[in-house]
Nucleic acid binder design. Structure first.
Lengths: 148, 148
DNA sequence: GCCCGATAGATTGTGCACAACTTAATTGTG
DNA sequence: CACAATTAAGTTGTGCACAATCTATCGGGC
């Protein structure tokens, strides 16, 4: 068979597997806080400006997720008491998502999480930064092509 | 906030996003064959030795997926007429998954797919190989830690 | 030969992802 | 102002992932 079709040769498979492996590292850690990885990502965005609410589509732009994914996820975060949702006063179509006090407080508790995970990769800081930048570049290239 | 908690700094987010972006590239291509990306991965394994059947757990080892994921996926591939499943004669617990003639024939048609996708990344061959190897290393490191 | 633990696969339930569609609100244009 | 086109979010349906559980089979020790 064509060599290119061999599983182990494919970058995409390496990416798919590495992504799931890293999520596996996050799972037991985040589980202590009752969070899933995508829920944690939403909180990361909100923690960047803890006092500002974001609309669902702003969160979607940051995380590249649509309302079909975010709507139920945000409902679960709201159910957990970590975020509050309310319709925008200016534009009733928008839903503004903000942190609750509990959601803000959680930030300190998960402070150590990224370091734990980075360590699990076995890579040094330089390699991690290089890897991240390569991946970001790939993602951006793909999305630029999509838009055209 | 702690810099480490900023979304854009995190390798894991870059990985998560890049993985989804690449799957996005695959989707319209594989859609023509009625395949999803994980289904395509199963076929890649089977195409490596087109005349040999594999058990569900062998596929699971290759792809790092469990029967909870594979059982329904294989049923769908069987429904599409691409694979055949049958209980092993030696060991009635095992289910052997083999390609049908149609499944073998599909191989030629998807021959060009990896090149399309590699091109979409915007990376050269050298960079792709380096990226793949780094990712494989990360995955292996994580899995080795798990086993201990 | 019979039980016990281990193994293989299937099933159930939860939570993403994503496409397709729906509803409601808003904006632009005549 | 009216109304068509657009936009924001939610809903529905499909298909992974994965944990937990279940069933059937197998293998070893007695």
């Amino acid at each position: 068979m064509t060599d290119d079709l061999v599983l182990r040769r494919q970058v995409c498979f390496a990416l798919y597997t590495a992504s799931r492996a890293l999520t596996d590292v996050y799972r037991p850690i985040l589980d202590e806080f009752g969070l899933t990885y995508p829920q944690y990502l939403v909180l990361l965005v909100l923690w960047e400006r803890p006092d500002d609410a974001r609309t669902v589509s702003e969160l979607g732009t940051e995380l590249r997720l649509d309302s079909g994914t975010l709507s139920p996820l945000l409902k679960r975060l709201e159910g957990a008491g970590l975020v509050a949702r309310r319709r925008s006063a200016h534009d009733e179509r928008r839903v503004e998502v903000g942190l609750t006090e509990q959601g803000r407080a959680l930030r300190q508790q998960v402070d150590h999480v990224p370091m734990c995970v980075a360590q699990a990769t076995g890579l040094g800081v330089t390699e991690l930064v290089a890897l991240r930048d390569t991946l970001t570049q790939v993602t951006d290239t793909i999305h630029r092509q999509k838009e055209q």
